[in-house]
Amino acid sequence: MNDVLTVRGLSVTVRDTALVSDVDLTVGAGERVGLIGESGSGKSLTALSILGLLPEDVRAGGSVRLDGVDHELVGADERRMSRVRGRDIAMVFQEPMTALNPTMRIGDQLAEAMLIHKTLAKPAARTAAADLLDRVQLPAETLRAYPHQLSGGQRQRVVLALALANDPALLICDEPTTALDVTVQALVLDLIVRGVVDRSSALLFITHDLAVVATVCERVLVMYGGRVVEAGPVAEVFTRPRHRYTEGLLAASDLETTSRRLTTIPGNVPPAGRFPSGCVFRTRCAHATALCEETPPWTGSETAGFACHHPAGVGND
């Protein structure tokens, strides 16, 4: 089976400042991949550059290829990208209100999503809209509602229905549940997973929440300072982390610890573009040496590996 998404050497820069460097990323057909990172890690910029939705003064370099699309996505013009967006790739953003047109009824927005790419004729699109809402467990009356009449969770379900309207090969979700309550998050996460599994779509799920990624995804990439520092199967990365950042992050987010004090990573996350040269984590890393001033090479395979000079899980520490 072909890989749905292949990203090679992706970089994102704004006025000579590198925000994302050298990102390789592959998503197989029907695979659920998580992209984990804190603020400034470049995870959202990576998603936006796949869709060609970067702000004006931000430039992407490298290569982004999508299965079934015969052209390079980096640098593709708006006309070609708009044919890809919504049909081959769809996206769910963090804030559902901004993703919906406040002056249009939900039903019209759903129908429009299908009519744009001519996947269905008009009357059929209407019926399909009701069906889509049903699949995200919203009643048919929602068709006639306006976005402001819905709660945050309901809106995010509508956005999900919109994204899945044309059975995209790849669904990208950028912190889709961060603005939602825990109980609503549970439902939306379940609907996302069921939505992509039903359609055999692939999923690229971006979040800062380790537990959410572990629940939703099969494979995970960890980003820090605009670079992928570690990648691998969820069970592997979250139980036997190799990069020192992954290791620290796992320890810092472990609230189940019996000791009153939590394990911490020293220092603060630098602002975007102000990460150190060489290993981006070396200024906060307890294991850093002079060697870390050189950019660590990637160890392991393309889907499972890490970039660290002094990896964890070797010897006795």
Binding site: V182, T183, A186, A211, A214, F238, L250, S253
Partner: peptide, 9 residues
């Protein structure tokens, strides 16, 4: 509804 690493793993 709270996702945790332990449960997920």
């Amino acid at each position: 509804a709270i996702p945790t690493l332990q449960r997920a793993l």
